[in-house]
């Protein structure tokens, strides 16, 4: 009987060690995938800087982007000038699973607002040029620049920055729909006066169409109705 209990105890300890090891390896995998992968299925879009992104002076010129290309070329793009065309800078990697849905559809999806597209990855020391050549669709320019990751304070791939002389919007998107929503908001915000009054009016109009008036209790799920003035 004692031997049986001892055997079961040893087995239990082994199981605990095995489960702990598995949990640890999964945690490491999630950590390496980055924060974006956690919301992979949700298609989350984060308007505005993601956690860890640098504080930027509003209207400050966008940093230049310079680096090599997977086919052995070189690029320097000055994006901070008044003559620079609006551009979506997509920070991607060849390794992250979330990035793959963007790599697959980069060449076939049209961006709103006649935006240019530039994909930025890390340097060749951290990325394989041949793998990027295989991933990048024809006509899509890829620049390998870890320096650009630092300059734009990219917390992890995928990360998107809308540049129009200065940084107009940035954030994480894990699906094309989320990216398009992010871009549409950023473009509308930049075409409106400071304060985003037009956007607020659109939201109010949508709420009104759904029968939700200002002060409606459903707007304050944590409270009992309209906020006390």
């Amino acid at each position: 009987m004692t031997a049986l209990i001892a055997c079961e105890t040893v087995l239990l300890v082994l199981l605990v060690v095995l489960v702990a090891g598995l949990l640890r390896s999964h945690a490491e995998i999630l950590r390496r995938l980055g924060p974006a992968a956690a919301g992979d299925d949700a298609g989350a879009a984060v308007a505005g800087p993601a956690p860890g992104a640098p504080r930027r002076d509003r209207g400050a010129p966008a940093p230049d982007i310079a680096g090599t290309t997977p086919d052995g070329g070189a690029i320097k793009l000055s994006l901070g000038g008044s003559t620079a065309a609006p551009m979506l800078v997509a920070f991607l990697s060849s390794g992250c699973t979330t990035c793959h849905r963007f790599w697959e559809r980069l060449g076939e999806r049209e961006l709103p607002g006649e935006l240019g597209l530039l994909v930025v990855t890390h340097d060749p020391t951290r990325e394989s040029p041949s793998r990027l050549r295989a991933l990048a669709p024809a006509g899509v320019t890829v620049v390998m620049s870890s320096h650009a990751y630092e300059e734009y304070g990219v917390p992890g791939a995928p990360y998107f920055v809308l540049v129009d002389g200065s940084v107009r919007g940035e954030g994480v998107a894990t699906t094309w729909a989320a990216l398009e929503s992010l871009l549409t908001d950023a473009i509308e915000d930049t075409s409106e006066p400071a304060g985003g009054g037009g956007r607020a009016e659109r939201i109010e109009a949508r709420l009104a169409a759904a029968g939700i008036a200002p002060g409606d209790p459903s707007l304050y799920p944590g409270g009992s109705g309209a906020r006390a003035e």
Binding site: A66, T69, D71, G72, G73, A74, I75, K76, L77, S78
Partner: peptide
């Protein structure tokens, strides 16, 4: 800032953009 590829190098001043490529 200097860009260099395919045996060509050029120094591009602030505000300039450039690229070296091979069709």
């Amino acid at each position: 800032m200097t860009i260099e590829a395919h045996g060509i190098a050029a120094e591009l001043p602030h505000g300039w953009s450039g690229r070296i490529f091979r069709l």
